[in-house]
């Protein structure tokens, strides 16, 4: 699972540069939480198109940890990128006034989708492509909000496990404080990924790597890491599979979009 961070940096930077120019855009925009993934992607984006063409959007809610905004602002200043600071509390709370709930998941999903909605608005205003910041661990475990944080046009780190993103971040010179942070969606006070998932990324990544990348028999992996843990991961992987796919279309004609109407994402660009 060890990566050559220098080579991945070069590859990801070229990918961002190529895709942006193909789509005819100079700029990229992303939601910057002050966490590891979005900071890493912002470092890559800045190297691909420069700080003037990199737009960071910081979107705290009143329940967000104050250190998140501080860290995000530190990154913005260090990289010299353009940024927007937009408090999403009024819009989110305006909705929940009409539709009250204490359900943390419902509240968190709404926040994630509010952020997506702002990113796509700024995308159109700035003519900037929305760059995804979900990593492979999250995508495989389905740990994200569909049409929320999982929404993006292109994603340079979606095939890197969390532990690999950290190695890349270290190589890119991401501040130590962010490297050491406990991963968190920061949707409510005290939330951590590892607390919610019930497993550390260190361990989840190893299990996912053996199951997904190496295609080892599940029994062998269960023996090594424990049956409950591995089953939990497999269950999550399939339960949330829909989040990774475009909507299912009922097939009626002989040629259906997504099934037998097949073209490259980059066709004629």
């Amino acid at each position: 699972m060890k990566i050559d961070a220098e080579k991945i940096e070069k590859f990801a930077v070229q990918f961002l540069r190529t895709e942006l120019s193909r789509i005819g855009m100079k700029r990229g925009v992303l939601g910057l939480s002050g966490g590891l993934d979005s900071t890493t992607v912002l470092y890559l984006l800045t190297r691909a198109v420069g700080p003037d063409n990199s737009v960071a959007v910081i979107m705290p809610h009143r329940v967000s940890s104050p250190s998140s905004v501080e860290d995000a602002m530190m990154v913005v200043k260090t990289l010299g990128v353009r940024h927007y600071l937009i408090d999403i509390t009024p819009m989110v709370e305006a909705y929940f006034e009409k539709m009250p709930t204490d359900d943390k998941i419902l509240r968190g999903n709404k926040m994630a989708r509010e952020r997506m909605s702002i990113l796509y608005d700024i995308s159109a205003r700035e003519r900037a492509l929305v760059i995804g910041t979900s990593n492979k661990s999250e995508i495989l475990l389905g740990y994200g909000t569909i049409f929320g944080d999982l929404a993006s046009a292109i994603n340079p780190i979606g095939d890197l496990y969390k532990t690999q993103v950290r190695a890349l971040a270290r190589h890119l010179g991401v501040p130590e404080k962010i490297l050491r942070k406990k991963p968190s969606a920061d949707l409510w006070a005290g939330q951590t990924d590892e607390g919610e998932l019930g497993i550390t990324y260190e361990e989840a990544d190893k299990i996912l790597y053996e199951l997904v990348d190496l295609r080892k028999p599940r029994e062998e992996v269960e023996e090594k890491y424990g049956r409950e843990k591995v089953r939990g991961i497999v269950e999550k992987m399939f339960k949330h599979h829909f989040k990774r796919l475009p909507p299912q279309i009922l097939k009626i004609s002989t040629r259906t979009v997504g099934r037998d109407f097949l073209y490259s994402r980059d066709v004629l660009t």
Binding site: Q14, F15, E19, R265, D266
Partner: peptide
Amino acid sequence: VGFDGGMG
């Protein structure tokens, strides 16, 4: 070299 649909 280059990229087609995310493959580099």
